[in-house]
Amino acid sequence: MFEAVLGAGDSDTLAIRAALYQASQSLEEQHISEEAAQRDRAEDLAEIEQRVAHLSADPEQISLPAVAALVERATALRDTGRLDEAEAAFTEAIDKGRRALGDGHPVVVSARYRLIHIHRLRGHTDVALAAARAALAEADRGLGRTHYETLITAAGVITLLLEAQQVEEHEELLEDRLADIIEGLGFSHPLVRALAAHRASLTLGQPDWRR
């Protein structure tokens, strides 16, 4: 959409596209090289595995720290490129989290959002989008529109809609959620700045957009 106004090779176009992509990544991935991040995560994984083993010693007692550790392990596996193991680990964390904490608990919503990124890494945008929509609906019900995990999940759906070229729904959701995201995360957050820049580019392309 913004290419039509600025041009595909314009520096602002490239910056906006890069920012939208980076918005879906963790802050660590934005500031550390991928290779260094993978080394760090591999080192972290051994410590996380020990914590998971300790917290999961009694399978009948699933605690919040245990579920959080499972999510952390799955994230570390994902970040080191072990996607099959990560998907299984996220599924385990989500299943146990639902039983122990409930569908709408922030840790469960976070796990669902992080699992979506695996589908994106595999290029399965449609699968990722369907999962993101379901996660957002669950977050809205369980946490409310302005909870941090809801805001992050909403931003993920907005980004995935653009990737899937579902432009009309993308624009509608961006308009509906951007004010909440700005208020909840603050304008200094890189995600907010990326989405706001993208919103501005849409306005440039369509002067009467959503008025």
Rank of each mutant, 00 (worst) to 15 (best):
E29W: 02
E29Y: 07
H31A: 09
I32E: 11
S33A: 12
E34H: 12
A36E: 14
A36L: 15
R39F: 08
D40H: 05
E43R: 14
A46R: 14
E47M: 12
I48R: 06
E49I: 15
Q50S: 08
Q50E: 14
R51A: 14
V52R: 07
A53V: 11
A53R: 03
S56D: 12
D58V: 15
D58N: 15
P59D: 10
Q61C: 05
I62P: 02
P65I: 06
L70C: 12
R73T: 05
A74L: 00
T75Q: 00
R78T: 04
R78S: 06
T80N: 00
G81K: 11
R82I: 01
R82M: 01
L83S: 09
D84T: 10
D84I: 07
D84G: 04
E85N: 08
E85R: 12
A86N: 02
A86F: 06
E87K: 13
A88I: 14
A88W: 00
A89Q: 13
A89R: 06
F90L: 12
E92M: 14
I94P: 06
I94R: 01
D95C: 08
D95A: 15
R98S: 00
R98P: 00
R98H: 02
R99Y: 01
R99K: 11
R99W: 10
A100Y: 13
L101H: 04
L101F: 09
L101D: 07
D103N: 08
P106F: 07
V109D: 00
V109H: 03
A111I: 03
R112W: 02
R112K: 11
R112T: 08
R112Y: 11
Y113D: 11
R114M: 05
R114V: 09
R114W: 05
I116C: 13
H117E: 15
I118C: 15
H119N: 10
R120Y: 15
R122K: 07
R122Y: 09
R122C: 04
H124S: 12
H124R: 15
T125A: 01
D126V: 13
V127W: 07
A128Q: 05
L129E: 01
L129V: 06
L129D: 02
A131L: 02
A131N: 13
A132V: 05
R133Q: 12
R133C: 05
A134K: 07
A137E: 14
E138Q: 03
D140W: 09
G142R: 04
G142D: 10
L143Q: 08
L143W: 06
G144F: 00
G144L: 01
G144T: 00
G144N: 01
R145H: 04
R145W: 00
T146D: 02
H147R: 04
Y148L: 11
Y148M: 13
Y148H: 15
E149H: 07
L151H: 06
L151C: 07
T153D: 01
T153N: 08
A154G: 14
A155Q: 05
A155T: 07
V157P: 09
I158K: 04
L160K: 05
L161S: 09
A164M: 10
A164G: 10
Q165G: 13
Q165T: 08
Q166F: 10
E168N: 03
E169C: 01
E169M: 07
E169G: 04
H170K: 08
E171Q: 14
L173N: 12
L173F: 14
L173H: 02
L173I: 12
L173Y: 08
L174D: 14
